[in-house]
Design a protein around this nucleic acid. Structure first.
Lengths: 138, 138
DNA sequence: ATAGTTATTGCAAAAACTTGCAATAAGGAT
DNA sequence: ATCCTTATTGCAAGTTTTTGCAATAACTAT
């Protein structure tokens, strides 16, 4: 509850509205320790808000991502997962067991600058998920 | 046709079989200049092979990707697209107009090594799609 | 407080993707 | 050539994700 007001003002400032659905979904993301699938979000948020429907969850996650309140995260199977926006980091996922760790964004900053200068594209920035083999599985 | 034999032997060597479905799908990927969605692949390959079904396309694309004959490519909306495996490159897509260019893999090699040494994960390698704003849209 | 504007939701139906299992057919052995 | 084994496919049904539109409710202005 207490964390809600900052989200409210972020949306208001852009002419959007805060709704109970958005709050429930933000709450679900906020209290998850990892990223969640749309279905996970639906199940959790529905506990707070029984009337919630699935299309709303999909649309809201996309909306929150566009507005910087949630971070979409690519997974290997081509499905998006979401987590609450926070500090900028990326993931490495083990191809074999699925174990997952975070990577500081600073490690990628140099690459992004290089990409910008060689490609002419600007404002390159996205959440990346890399795949590898974790120490335990090696 | 002529390109088929090399694929056949790659599969045989691993105990897999070459089928008309796989050939049609490889053919569709090979003659596309860009990456294709599963549905695109289905539509194109079905012209060669009218009996082809959609589940087969999904399964085959995943299979080809696992075996290095096709390359899955993350897109912004969280859906996988596929292209024929060839030289190792990545993409930058314009957030605004969707224009897309390739990025040499060599640009990322340094990053991958750094990730491996700091994370302990090995064999990090995946096709990356970055998002930015292209020169025309800036 | 109340009314008006319009962003947002729910519903229902469609499209995209997945899964289990029986039938088929590719490739090796005879 | 023919048979056998089993990888692979098609079918049918399920689940997940998307879409259009009418109904709702959040915020603004009065």
């Amino acid at each position: 509850m207490s964390c809600a007001s900052e989200y409210v003002s972020q949306l208001r400032a852009r002419g959007f509205r805060m709704t109970s659905q958005r709050l429930a979904i933000l709450h679900a993301l906020r209290h998850a320790e990892t990223h969640l699938s749309p279905r996970d979000v639906f199940k959790r948020a529905k506990q707070d808000l029984p009337g919630l429907t699935e299309p709303t969850v999909y649309r809201t996650l996309e909306f929150l991502a566009e507005n910087g309140l949630a971070r979409p995260s690519q997974t290997g199977n081509g499905h998006l997962m979401y987590e609450i926006a926070g500090d900028n980091h990326h993931h490495i996922v083990c191809r074999i067991c699925g174990a997952e760790i975070e990577v500081e964004h600073t490690l990628l900053e140099h690459l992004y600058h290089e990409l910008e200068s060689t490609s002419g594209y600007l404002r390159i920035d996205s959440h990346m998920t890399f795949f590898g083999v974790c120490p335990a599985c090696q």
